[in-house]
Simulated assay, not measured.
Amino acid sequence: MPDRIPSPTPPTPDDRIRSREPLVFGGLPEAEGWALAPITPRDRVHFRVDRELPLDEFRRVLPDGVTVSYDQGDGLYRVDGACGSAAVLADWVKAWCTGQGITTVGLRAETGVRRRAPRDLPPEFLADLCRHYGPVSLKRLQRNMSTIRLHLPDPDDLGQQVFEWVLKAVAQYDETKSVPFGAFLATQLSKWVHDLGRNAHGRTAADTEHKQQKAIAAFMAEYQRRPSEKELAAYMGQSVATLRRNSQTVATLNGLRNLQSLDGAPDATEILLPDSSEAPDEIMGEAEQTLLSHALTAACAPDPAARPDQRAGQPNVLGWATWYLTTWGGQTKTQLSSDLNTSVRNMNVYADRVEKALKHRLAELAE
């Protein structure tokens, strides 16, 4: 009797993953597309400025082989040159900006940065890759959507941001590491979501809040209750005084996010002012300052006529901080930019929205 022929072993999920056909973008398998524009090392100088650079003029005077890119969202300039040129480029950038009356903020040189320019990829390959990974990224980000909507309530803004993140991943993806691009993109997305809070509220405040929330969550998972102030300080390896100071930063951040709860008075409540002929100048000065402060807060509150998914339907936190701290806090925009780790340009974008609303509020008060 012949031996029984064993039935073939069904493929495991891992086998099916390994045997998956490669993705094809613009008629090219994904691996071939990356090979056409390999990632390369360079030296890079990062910096921000107190006012926008004249980019066309700046590019014309750059040394041969040096390029500059500008991240409008972060207000960050990046000057790239050959390996070994970081220190020279940093000195050159600082000298050129000084000659133009421009102040650099947070200038730093970095060596051996590995990047690719997305434009070096075949256009059809890049377009198909974005069309594929854009929806994939949106699905991956569903778990972070509550955080994202605090900063990007408009669906169109969210879609644009996702494609910007895909292009950012394209620039940073190192095909020599044997990690699929999709896996690399997924790991980066959650980091970039956290950066949204850093850009809107400042790196220090956002990171402090993130660390505290992680520590509280870890403590509750371990002990099934919220920690006391002393327990949380010990859990985070901090003194109670440091924890209290950081908690005040977090409380301020949360208060700024809820500007709509501060919007009230001139439209809803009658404010009685003393007769200027009988009241001392100090009282009138305080009354005028109070009205101006309220008008500023009201100008930063959400527009009740806007939909919640629109940018105008969200509190303008960075605009409020910019106006308040430069008006009453005694800080310049350059100092504030350094403290909040955001660009002056980014602050100006939010402050301009405040200015338009504030002019309308002050006109109403003057009538």
Rank of each mutant, 00 (worst) to 15 (best):
S247Q: 12
T327I: 04
P135Y: 00
P13C: 02
V49P: 03
T252E: 14
G202C: 02
E222H: 11
V49S: 11
C300N: 09
H201P: 06
A312W: 01
K214W: 04
K211P: 05
P63Y: 03
D154Y: 02
V344M: 10
R257A: 10
D174K: 00
H194L: 14
E282I: 13
L158D: 05
A205K: 04
R59E: 14
T269V: 14
W92T: 03
L129T: 12
A301K: 05
C300W: 10
V93P: 01
N258P: 09
R16G: 01
L243F: 05
A90N: 01
P123F: 12
F25R: 07
D207R: 08
A233I: 07
L273R: 15
G197E: 00
A295K: 11
G26I: 02
A279D: 05
D267F: 08
P38T: 05
T147P: 04
T332P: 04
Q188K: 13
S277N: 11
M1A: 00
L185S: 10
L243N: 04
S228R: 15
R114S: 04
E110A: 01
M284E: 06
L365S: 07
I271Y: 14
E367P: 10
R226C: 12
I283D: 06
R203N: 11
V136R: 13
P54I: 05
D14H: 10
V45R: 00
V179N: 06
S261Y: 13
L152N: 10
G101P: 04
T326C: 14
L107S: 00
G182W: 02
P153C: 02
T40E: 15
G159P: 03
A366T: 12
T147C: 13
D56A: 14
K230H: 13
P63R: 03
C83M: 11
Q331R: 13
V105E: 05
T269I: 14
L89N: 10
L138K: 06
Y173L: 05
G255Y: 09
R140Y: 03
M1K: 01
D267W: 07
D56P: 14
V349N: 13
P155S: 11
V166M: 09
S69D: 06
T67I: 00
A183N: 07
L126D: 09
T332F: 03
K177M: 04
A321T: 13
W96D: 06
A37T: 03
I283Y: 02
R307C: 07
S85K: 06
N258Y: 12
H151L: 09
D43H: 00
M1F: 02
E286Y: 09
A295E: 04
P304G: 06
D263R: 13
D154Q: 09
G255W: 15
Y77F: 07
D156R: 13
R198Y: 01
